[in-house]
Structures are given as structure tokens and as C-alpha cells.
């Protein structure tokens, strides 16, 4: 088998395994997995920019929130149906990521971190400022009755899980395709050495903007899906904390590995869930685990896997 075949089988296999898991796992865990898949989409969007292009953003919560509020407000005030509302969420995330990308890409490195952080912070405050419509920190509920797509009830365990899986699979395959395409290789070239990429004739600025936009829209789709599947939109999701989460998930799972974000998100979720069952001081366990991981798995879980056993991991 060639590496390309291997990686194709890997991606298809992961999706099939996830689909089967719904029928095997107890209800609690399949419910968790639905949420994890949505969040993993957010992390995959982040991974494209951070893991493959080498741009560390601290403001991705802005894109997540753009998708969430684009969908939420469209349903709340204009009675959009879920499909149209998802499109509204994606459009808002697209517009926001173009604007942010256009301005923030004038900077690199730490300045890029700060500029994205500041834009996200301004976005969070804007949600509070327009509290009359957004209900600020408290947020609003998307009623159960509105969360139907045709005959599919998105609030049923199965409807929710397979909608989440569908979104995950689409984004997973898109990422798998991108990283093998010329575009993806150019992004890696930028990550490894921006000057050399410029000298080789790549339009670095344009490529980076495209990466920001794809990454932003993917994060936005996760935000829209979260609001739709779990029935709630709130400003908490626009806070800095939610910008740091995808960074953490990606670093834990393995930056620049296609399955890294999924692994990192699952790991972090169950780290909190199980340690909180052992002790109320679960943050202590989570903190220790993070420190130990940095010491012993420097490239994240999937990164270690690639380094030690599976050098062909995309």
C-alpha cells in the first residue's frame, strides 16, 4: 500500500468507526461523542492555520461565535429554517474571517497572536454591547421545535449524532484533501520557511489569507452546529478561554496531523470528565496531565504516534 492509500483508508476508517460507535457505546458516551465531534471540527479548522500554516491565532473564538450567532440570530429574529440558518452562520464567519485575515495578516508571530486576540475580545464585547438582541452573557435558547430538518429531529440522540458526524466527515475529508494538494504543501512550505516560499514564487499573502478564511469558516461551522444541536448560543463561547481551547486540543492531539484535533479533543474531554469523577479538584489532575504530556509527548499524542510507529500519518 502506498502512503496515500493508507491515509485514505485511515480517514474513511475513522469515520466508519465513529458511525459504528454510536450503536455500541452507552447513551452517555455517544452523546459526549456528538459534542466532541462538533468541537473537533473547531479544532480541525484551527489546526489548518496553526498546524499546517504555522500561524498561531488567539482569536478563533470570534469565528466560532460568528457561526453560532449567525445561525442563532437568523433563527431567533428572522425565523430561518435550520439549513438557511447554517448558511447564514457560514456567511457571517466568512465575512468576519476575511476582515480579520486581511488586517491581521499584516503581522506575523506574536503580533499576529495579539491582533487576533484583540479582535476576538472586541467581538465578545460587541455581543455584550448589543445585549438587547443577543442577551449578552446569558445568551438565548434555540427552541426544540425549531431544530427539525425535514423529518430529522436534531434533538434526538441519533439525529444529533449523525448530523455532527456528517459535519465532521465533510471537514475531515476536506482537510485530508487540502494537506495533500498543492495548496496544502504550499502552506507547509510557508510554515517551514516563509522567505523561501516567497522566493519560490508563491503568493504567500494570498495563500495565508485563504488559510485564514478556510480555517475561520470551518470554526464557524462548528459554532453554528453547536448552537443548532445543543440549542444554546451565548457570549461565553466568544471569550478568550474558548480561543485557547482549540490551541490546547491541537497541541495535545498533535499539530499538523489530520487526526490530531479529534484525538486531542477526546483526550481533553475525558480527562476533565473522569478526573472530576475522582475528585472535585479535577483541575489539579488536568494540570498535572498537561505538564506530564509536555514532558513526555512533545508532539502531541498523534504526533508521538507518527514519530514512533506510523511515519506515514498525514
Amino acid at each position: 500500500m502506498t502512503d496515500i492509500q493508507r491515509s485514505n483508508w485511515l480517514h474513511i476508517g475513522v469515520v466508519i468507526a465513529l458511525a459504528c460507535s454510536f450503536f455500541i457505546l452507552p447513551e452517555y458516551h455517544s452523546g459526549n461523542l456528538a459534542r466532541i465531534l462538533v468541537l473537533a471540527v473547531y479544532a480541525m479548522g484551527y489546526n489548518l492555520l496553526f498546524g499546517y500554516t504555522g500561524l498561531l491565532s488567539l482569536g478563533h473564538a470570534l469565528f466560532f461565535a460568528a457561526g453560532m450567532y449567525g445561525l442563532g440570530l437568523a433563527m431567533q429574529f428572522f425565523d430561518f429554517n435550520p439549513i438557511a440558518a447554517v448558511i447564514a452562520g457560514l456567511i457571517l464567519a466568512l465575512v468576519v474571517s476575511i476582515c480579520v485575515g486581511f488586517l491581521a495578516l499584516r503581522t506575523t508571530g506574536v503580533a499576529f497572536m495579539i491582533v487576533t486576540l484583540m479582535f476576538a475580545q472586541a467581538g465578545y464585547l460587541t455581543i455584550l454591547y448589543f445585549g438587547e438582541y443577543t442577551r449578552g452573557d446569558e445568551g438565548f435558547v434555540i427552541q426544540q421545535a425549531d431544530r427539525m430538518v425535514g423529518m430529522i429531529d436534531l434533538t434526538s440522540p441519533m439525529g444529533r449524532f449523525f448530523t455532527a458526524l456528517l459535519l465532521f466527515a465533510i471537514c475531515f475529508f476536506i482537510i485530508a484533501y487540502i494537506v495533500r494538494s498543492g495548496f496544502g504543501l504550499a502552506l507547509v512550505a510557508i510554515r517551514e520557511n516563509e522567505e523561501r516560499a516567497t522566493m519560490l514564487g508563491y503568493d504567500v499573502m494570498r495563500l495565508k489569507l485563504q488559510a485564514v478564511v478556510i480555517s475561520g469558516v470551518m470554526s464557524g461551522s462548528a459554532g453554528a452546529a453547536y448552537a443548532l444541536l445543543f440549542g444554546y448560543a451565548g457570549a461565553t463561547f466568544a471569550t478568550v478561554q474558548y480561543s485557547i481551547f482549540p490551541l490546547l486540543w491541537v497541541l495535545l492531539g498533535g499539530a499538523g496531523v489530520t487526526i490530531g484535533p479529534l484525538i486531542g479533543t477526546i483526550f481533553m474531554f475525558y480527562l476533565i470528565d473522569y478526573s472530576s469523577a475522582i475528585t472535585p479538584a479535577y483541575m489539579l489532575i488536568a494540570g498535572l496531565a498537561l505538564v506530564l504530556l509536555t514532558l513526555f509527548a512533545p508532539q502531541g499524542l498523534a504526533g508521538e504516534l507518527r514519530r514512533r510507529f506510523l511515519p506515514w500519518l498525514p
Partner: peptide
């Protein structure tokens, strides 16, 4: 806290 109520009540 009411944002937690809003986030949890739909579920």
C-alpha cells in the same frame, strides 16, 4: 448563574 441555566435547560 443564569447563563448556565440557559445552556443546560435545553438538554
Amino acid at each position: 448563574f443564569s447563563h448556565v441555566v440557559f445552556g443546560s435547560a435545553p438538554r
